[in-house]
Design a protein around this nucleic acid. Structure first.
Lengths: 215, 215
DNA sequence: CCTGCCTGTTACTTGCGGTAACATCAGTGT
DNA sequence: ACACTGATGTTACCGCAAGTAACAGGCAGG
């Protein structure tokens, strides 16, 4: 193997460089928000733009590469919470709390993940529907759907229902978390409790107010 | 009243012009997607950029003005569904279906509403959290929260819970609708049924699959 | 020595948001 | 009649960001 020496070195240094660039990009994005320019990122890394383009193709490529790490980390945490040894309600609460703790701890990362690239050209006027939802949300929805379909006996059509629930629950978590993080109206534990109550069907059984139009 | 004649005419023609510009902008946005340029909008309206800026301040202003009409229309529809004469389950289903029918009928409008402006400068590095969620979602969440708080007897702390539920349900509806519109895995009625089942707490009572780790 | 190949540069093009400066025409006060 | 005001419209420009040549040096291996 004469190749191992230099080609291995080349590859390793290339990947090493790539990691360095990603870390520089992360620093800039965390400092300047998701609108950070390629020039700023290149400057932070001590180099110039074309190198970034050689490594990542375009801005979207860089942002996607950046997002993968955080997305994976977040999903790992959620899977762990979903697999904790406890009853179903506790698992749901733990999963909600894990997500909320993550976005609370690093709101800049969260903001970046939910908003990676805006408008990937390739539209072509034929309505393709708003796919503005961040890929991380789609992945979370799909993974949750899979867990639900695997573990719950939903009967015929259960897989479809599991997917609806997966995306629905993730959307609920995301929207509530976004609002909570902005307004901070209560503690994280209270938010988790309220959401779990909602998922546990309290909306269906709570009584109407007296003297109000029914709901 | 010497003012009524000319000032009234001036105001009316100004507002008329504004409506014309908004309609041209809408045509372009529906044709080119939310990334449409001010130049393109001005050209569609038969004028040039500075006029748009005089009328709407900046791009965000134009987009906000555009969004208001659709947002109002959508919210009116949702309020009507929420006020329909039927039991609670039917009302929830009607509300979900109204929202989904709206985004199904005009996906381009939907996409535009959920994605108005990207990154309104004014960040200031101090974490302000991802407020990328479209204003329309916030408004929907707040309005639903108000309806819930008004009509349901949630006991102490009920208002807080109502707000959590409002934003959570809206997020669920949005995420599920977005996914459904992209993949079209089932009929609208089925999607509504699945979501209503989720809100009715079936997640809490459905049985584990035999031989699988519990959930 | 010359040929690739990687890394890096400077300098450019294109396109966008936004603005300044100027031109035009309608009605108003004196 | 005449200057003034104010809205409508223009051309031409600035600044900035994404993305792209085209060129310059280090370091293999024939």
């Amino acid at each position: 193997m004469e190749t191992t020496s230099h080609r291995g070195d080349h590859h390793r240094s290339a990947e090493h460089r790539r990691r360095e660039l990603l870390e520089a990009a992360e620093r800039v994005v965390l400092r300047d928000g998701p609108g950070a320019s390629m020039n700023a990122i290149a400057a932070e890394a001590g180099i110039t733009k074309p190198i970034l383009y050689r490594h990542f193709g375009d801005k979207d490529g860089l942002y996607r590469a950046l997002a993968v790490r955080h997305t994976d980390a977040l999903l790992d945490g959620l899977r762990a919470a979903l697999d904790a040894p406890a009853d179903r309600r506790r698992r749901v609460e733990a999963t909600l709390d894990t997500y909320l703790a993550a976005i609370e701890a690093r709101p800049q990362v969260y903001r970046f993940l939910m908003h990676p690239s805006e408008e990937t050209r390739g539209d072509e006027q034929g309505f393709d529907v708003g796919r503005q939802s961040a890929p991380v949300l789609r992945r979370m929805g799909e993974e949750l759907a899979q867990v639900i379909a695997e573990r719950l006996d939903l009967g015929p059509g259960g897989e479809e229902q599991a997917r609806v629930w997966g995306h629905g629950i993730v959307g609920m978590m995301h929207a509530a978390g976004d609002w909570w993080l902005r307004e901070r109206p209560c503690s994280r534990a209270q938010l988790v409790a309220h959401l779990a109550e909602l998922l546990w069907g309290r909306l269906a059984v709570v009584h109407d107010r007296v003297g109000a139009p029914g709901f």
